[in-house]
Amino acid sequence: MTQATQPTQATQPIRNLLTIAGSDPSGGAGIQADLKTFSACGCYGMSVITGLTAQNTQGVQAIHPLPAEFVAQQFDSLLTDIRIDGIKIGMLSDASVIAILAKRLSDFNGPVVLDPVMIAKGGAALIDSPTQHALRNQLLPLAGLVTPNLPELATLVGQAEAQTREQMLDQAEQLLALGAQAVLAKGGHLSGNDCYDLLLNKQGASWLHQPRIATANTHGTGCTLSSAIASFWAQSGDLTTAVAAAKHYITQAIGHADQLQVGSGHGPTHHFYQWWS
């Protein structure tokens, strides 16, 4: 966290951030990663759980979606009692859950970051076609920022995965035309020594890049990045500032990931690298 983005009690209250996502029992992704990120970035974290998973650092073995009515009850319970300053949305189980969220988000005025968790690391689809359609048409226009990786971006626009930065920009522009307010296209799947991300909105495009870090411990990077953006956005009020700060945070979290010893597959990033000695 940089000094410019670190909140202080004297200038503003601690922001309350909500994650709407699935649970990862291994702690590297999902609501567990989101809550760690909120805390590390200076916010108070809350959660609405959309589904349970059986997973570890080697993969996802099972998914148990929660009923849409119970997802709604969790959300409504928070809305009636607690000020919510920003929302991050991750794994959504089905179209009925998306319809419920869309109805409630239509009246929400704070930052909303949508991380479209659609495809597993191995390439398998995590949601069916009706759910993809509902996400694209009902939820996408309500999010202040959508953060797809390249396979997710390709799925959202119905094309093959981008292989170049030019194709990445073209697909991000198509997603903007579909109703997204802003897009952060994550280019980690591109080859090369640097990782390029593209921030695109109606004001224009900007590229962010960092050197690629040689580590297998990248589980939950998308969850962590989107949660960091939501945290910094709720605190600063500026999306560009938030994305830059979050890009720095995730780069450092990946860079310190090998300090942890979690599992035998793709381990988690180090969410508390700046706090743990």
Rank of each mutant, 00 (worst) to 15 (best):
A21G: 11
T2P: 14
R136Y: 04
L139C: 09
Q163S: 10
L126T: 02
Q203G: 09
G122T: 06
E173I: 05
D238T: 08
K121M: 08
G86V: 07
A162R: 04
A230Q: 00
E152R: 07
L190D: 03
F70S: 15
H133K: 10
V71W: 07
N149S: 05
A21R: 06
A21C: 14
D194I: 00
P25L: 13
A185C: 03
S236T: 09
R165I: 04
L126M: 07
G255P: 10
L101E: 06
Q167T: 07
L156W: 03
K103D: 14
G179Q: 03
L190T: 02
G192W: 01
V157R: 07
K103N: 12
G42Y: 14
P25K: 09
P148N: 05
L114Y: 09
S47Q: 15
G187M: 00
W233Y: 06
I119Q: 04
V117S: 02
C195F: 00
V112D: 02
A99Y: 01
W275Q: 12
C43L: 11
V71D: 14
N193V: 02
A54E: 13
A33H: 10
G237L: 09
W233N: 01
A120E: 07
P130S: 05
Q32P: 09
Q259M: 11
P65H: 12
R104E: 05
P151Q: 10
T2C: 13
N217V: 04
I49F: 12
Q203L: 07
V60P: 14
M91L: 14
M46W: 13
A230I: 05
W207T: 00
Q174T: 10
C43S: 15
P7I: 10
R165T: 06
Q181E: 13
T218P: 01
G110D: 08
P13M: 12
G42C: 14
S264T: 13
G188C: 03
L105Y: 01
Q174K: 10
A228S: 03
N217H: 09
S277H: 13
E152C: 03
Q163C: 08
A214P: 00
L156R: 08
P141G: 08
I87S: 02
V112H: 03
F272E: 11
L135R: 06
K202R: 11
S129L: 11
S39D: 09
A72K: 13
T53P: 15
Q163W: 07
T240S: 12
P65I: 11
G42Q: 14
A182S: 06
H133C: 08
P111T: 04
E152G: 08
F70P: 15
